[in-house]
Design a protein around this nucleic acid. Structure first.
Lengths: 136, 136
DNA sequence: TTGTACTGTAATAACATTAATTACAGAATG
DNA sequence: CATTCTGTAATTAATGTTATTACAGTACAA
């Protein structure tokens, strides 16, 4: 998770939370993030498939939250953008003839599950409403 | 942290923990990880600068732990390889003329510090000895 | 004292991932 | 029915990561 998807999604959702139901265009959102609008539309497409936002096509279209900001948790956003394990994985398959190489992936997976658990737990305690309130 | 440095460093240290003081060469370690020995030497160089391993040059050289495996915590390893924030950063500087764009980096930093705190805390409770014992 | 087996490190190339851009079909509105 | 928007695919550009090559320097052992 070394990429910008979490902060971008959180930025989008914060803008939507503060827009209080009015539709925001991908161009407007991209202007705040300072990135390409296609990236925003892609990210919104992902958030939509996770049930966090709704969007409307056509003239005067745009996006809104699919539910109250108090019901969207940072753990939901994390889950929506998560694509690789938190602490990284080696690209190569370790040597199966070595006691460590043989089992390290299993033990890494277990460790990662444990560690990611505490992280998700923490994010579970913070709502989008909590986060976006800070901008008032 | 989408790269393989944490798992590679942990793999190296696990091998060293199990070698119980005898020197392991970068070639041997690379053979277990299945990566290039230069990568191993670079990572060992980093771990050495963090005080986790010692190494000896020349014939019959190699690396060992700089202290007992029970005194090396996974949080030390995390700190040694950490190079970017856990949940990623957008590459672009957000629009300062937008209330959200103006302050989001500050609020993201605070959030990341909080979240990373619980992760480090978790890793602090697990030693290299605990981890490497699993391979017995 | 010299060959051998290592480390340390720099420089470069190969590869993988991420973001930006271009392009365009389709939807909703006025 | 022109306009303004979304949705999405395809491509290119930028960046980040790992592998490779090269070689100087160190320690050992015959």
């Amino acid at each position: 998770m070394n990429n910008g998807r979490f902060p971008i999604s959180l930025h989008i959702l914060t803008l939507l939370a503060r827009a209080e139901g009015s539709l925001l265009s991908s161009d407007f959102i991209a202007g705040s993030i300072n990135c390409n609008p296609v990236i925003v539309r892609k990210e919104i497409s992902n958030l939509r498939s996770c049930g966090l936002v709704e969007s409307k096509e056509g003239k005067n279209g745009g996006a809104t939250l699919a539910k109250p900001a108090g019901n969207i948790l940072l753990s939901d956003i994390y889950a929506a953008v998560r694509q690789s394990s938190l602490l990284g994985n080696s690209r190569n398959t370790p040597n199966p003839d070595c006691a460590v190489g043989r089992d390290i992936n299993t033990h890494l997976e277990n460790l990662y599950a444990e560690v990611e658990g505490v992280l998700v737990n923490k994010l579970h305690g913070i709502s989008l409403a909590d986060f976006s309130r800070q901008f008032d």
